[in-house]
């Protein structure tokens, strides 16, 4: 079943890419699929577009697609939304806000909702990104709702995190609380054509001024007027491909912590983990032994645990 599909993928059949993304998003046959992918000649630039709901991620992504195509780079968009925990259904409307490029094979847009919500989606993301990269897209835009902690996990999987903020969305303390500013490589103040942009910019710069170390560039952009879109792409492009960096020990430690967080999310609901918790609660296993056991579960578990 899988072999012909993978063969079509290698022939750059978009329908095969689309189908494989469905399988991987459901956690089906992920390891077999990944094993069958061609190696990529050139790594993609993976850019996460994140921010609170309603900040205009999809509209901005739509503008970025056009800008990236102007530079003759192919681009794939993965637009991620949570699915309803009640019905398992999802209403994915991001595509609606991006202009269609029906005749352009250099643009691929895919909406995703993972069973099990944001945590499970994060667990499937490495494989989803690998699929799109292996297909040969040069830029991958990953659109996710910024929800604080979840973004730290996403950060480990991408080269550049663009955080979108807009005028009149809460005060600086809210952003600080959510830990959003810390994960950003570029901060885009969206809807810069609206009143209140000066105040928003001042708040962000003040918040950034409190942190030690280098601060990310802060840009004013507007999807409505097109202001700052070209500059935003330049800022994204100017940053190193973080996934490829191999020198900084801190970076490796940080990545390990973040991958561990992703694995925790995937493992905690599994039968071996709940069984371990039961044995620990009832005193059948000592705390130290339980910790060791948990570490073993974390390191053994496939990242794409369903």
């Amino acid at each position: 079943m899988l072999a012909p599909l993978l063969e079509r993928f290698r022939q750059r059949d978009r329908l095969a890419l689309a189908r494989l993304l469905s399988l991987v998003a459901r956690g089906e046959q992920t390891e077999e699929i990944l094993a069958g992918l061609p190696t990529t000649a050139k790594p993609a630039r993976v850019v996460s577009i994140t921010g609170p709901g309603g900040v205009g991620k999809s509209s901005l992504t739509g503008k970025l697609i056009a800008e990236i195509r102007r530079h003759h780079l192919s681009v794939a968009v993965l637009a991620c939304d949570p699915q309803s925990p009640l019905s398992g259904g999802a209403l994915l409307g991001d595509r609606f806000r991006m202009p269609a490029h029906p005749d352009d094979d250099g643009v691929f847009i895919r909406s995703l909702a993972a069973a099990g919500g944001q945590g499970a989606l994060a667990a499937h993301l490495p494989a989803l990104l690998q699929l799109v990269e292996s297909f040969g897209f040069e830029v991958i835009l990953l659109e996710t709702v910024g929800a604080g902690q979840g973004d730290t996990a996403v950060r480990a999987l991408v080269d550049v995190v663009v955080l979108l903020l807009q005028p009149e969305t809460g005060d600086e303390l809210q952003w600080e609380k959510a830990g959003l500013l810390e994960v950003a490589d570029v901060i885009a103040l969206h809807k810069a054509d609206l009143p209140g942009i000066d105040r928003a910019e001042a708040q962000v710069l003040a918040a950034l001024g409190l942190s030690a170390g280098p601060t990310p560039p802060v840009l004013r952009v507007s999807s409505r007027t097109g202001q700052g879109i070209a500059d935003l792409w330049q800022a994204i492009r100017a940053l190193p491909l973080r996934r490829g960096l191999r020198r900084d020990a801190d970076e490796l430690f940080r990545l390990t912590r973040e991958w561990l967080a992703v694995r925790f999310a995937a493992v905690r609901a599994t039968p071996p983990c709940t069984a371990l918790l039961d044995r620990w609660r009832t005193g059948q296993v000592r705390t130290e032994a339980a910790v060791r056991e948990l570490l073993r579960l974390l390191s053994d578990s496939p990242l794409d645990h369903d």
Binding site: G89, A90, L92, A100, P102
Partner: peptide, 21 residues
């Protein structure tokens, strides 16, 4: 959505080509 489907809303004023894509 409420019945458990994953609904991709592609919106208004689409060309047949854009819908197929």
């Amino acid at each position: 959505r409420d019945a458990g489907f994953h609904v991709i809303y592609a919106g208004l004023w689409q060309t047949p080509e854009a819908v197929v894509r």
